[in-house]
Simulated assay, not measured.
Amino acid sequence: MGRTFVFLPPLRTVSGGLAVLAAVAAGLATLGHNVRLVLRDPAAPPLALPPGLPTVGLAETGLTPDDVYLVPEGWPNALAPGLAVGARCLVYCQNWAYLWNGLPDGVGWDQLPVTFLAVSDPVARFIAQATGTLPPVLRPAIDPARFYPPPAKPALGPVRVGYMPRKNKALAAMIRRLAEARMARTGISYEFAPIDGLSPDGVAEVLRGCHIFLATGFPEGCPLPPLEAMACGCVVAGFAGFGGFDYMRQARSGGHVPSVPLRPIAWGGNGFYAGDNDVFAAGACLEQAARLWLDGGGELAAVLESARLTAAAYGPGEQQAALARIWKEPGAL
């Protein structure tokens, strides 16, 4: 195998997906691969680049047929330098909903000599449904040195709920209003903590001070904020975005059952999940999570332990092992 080129899209703000691409490039370099970052404008990188990795412009990549060229979904035009020379072009799909973004009308993936890499098992199954081929899975990683539980959660006066307003803002507001409208009848008092515009360390600090994380994002490929919340000792409630069912499992029976088959995992129920866009059910999930904290006991301890095991399965070591396996397997790329 030759070199590996990783295209970093010219986004205005640093997204989770962009950070994952940079982490993949750094991980491959750590494994001894010859890695180069491809930028549309090397003079204006879209994020702080991993140290020590050379950069090349999109117009002068120097790709050869022996090289691997990794491009995220949604940027098919960036594949052009690799397709032109017959490089092994690999599309890393981090969100199933963007699989066909950017492709011209009348052009399908079956017409292009590319292979796929999926960010989660649900995304891999979606790609298989669309293309007939099940791709390998490369999951993202969270940083355990940054996302970890506090010695103790805040005392239960109000139940403190962290959420990200940018994730389906109107629906998040509706779920919050529903919970607040029911407080007099449920006896549950909430304090909502918006997580917006913070550094990763700031996000972790807020999560450590919360009992619940309200997940309002969809569609998702393998959502990192709920994983980070689990690592910080929160019970997650809300939406899975389809891709979240790579790791999300219902804490109680009778909840939403996803249409995608669920892979075997080594943990039990780690939260309360509604069907995407179902505000009624998401409100009930939030209330179940709050009751769990207020009641305490063995059920709360079991859910928190499952959440801890879930987060531990998405560490940097697990991602490195997957990278080593995928870049070594004949025919995987």
Rank of each mutant, 00 (worst) to 15 (best):
G2A: 13
F7S: 07
L11C: 07
G16H: 01
L21Q: 05
L31N: 09
H33G: 05
L39I: 01
A43R: 11
A43F: 00
A44T: 12
A48P: 03
P50D: 13
L53H: 09
L53Y: 08
D67T: 01
V68S: 08
L70R: 09
G74F: 11
N77P: 03
G82M: 10
G86A: 02
A87D: 04
W100S: 13
P104T: 05
G108T: 14
D110T: 11
D110E: 15
V114I: 15
A118L: 02
P122A: 03
R125Y: 03
A128H: 07
I142N: 00
P144K: 04
A145D: 14
Y148A: 08
L156V: 12
G157H: 01
G157C: 00
R160K: 13
Y163P: 14
K169H: 12
L171M: 12
A172K: 09
S189F: 10
F192V: 14
G202Q: 01
E205H: 02
G209M: 14
I212E: 09
P219W: 12
E220W: 02
G221N: 07
C222P: 00
C222Y: 02
P225I: 13
P226H: 14
V235L: 15
A237W: 15
G241L: 13
F245K: 08
R249C: 10
A251I: 12
V257Q: 13
V257Y: 09
R263Q: 11
P264Q: 12
I265T: 13
A266F: 00
G269E: 14
N270A: 07
N270R: 12
D278R: 10
V279R: 09
F280Q: 00
A281G: 04
A281Y: 01
L292P: 01
D295V: 10
A301F: 03
R308K: 11
T310C: 09
Y314R: 11
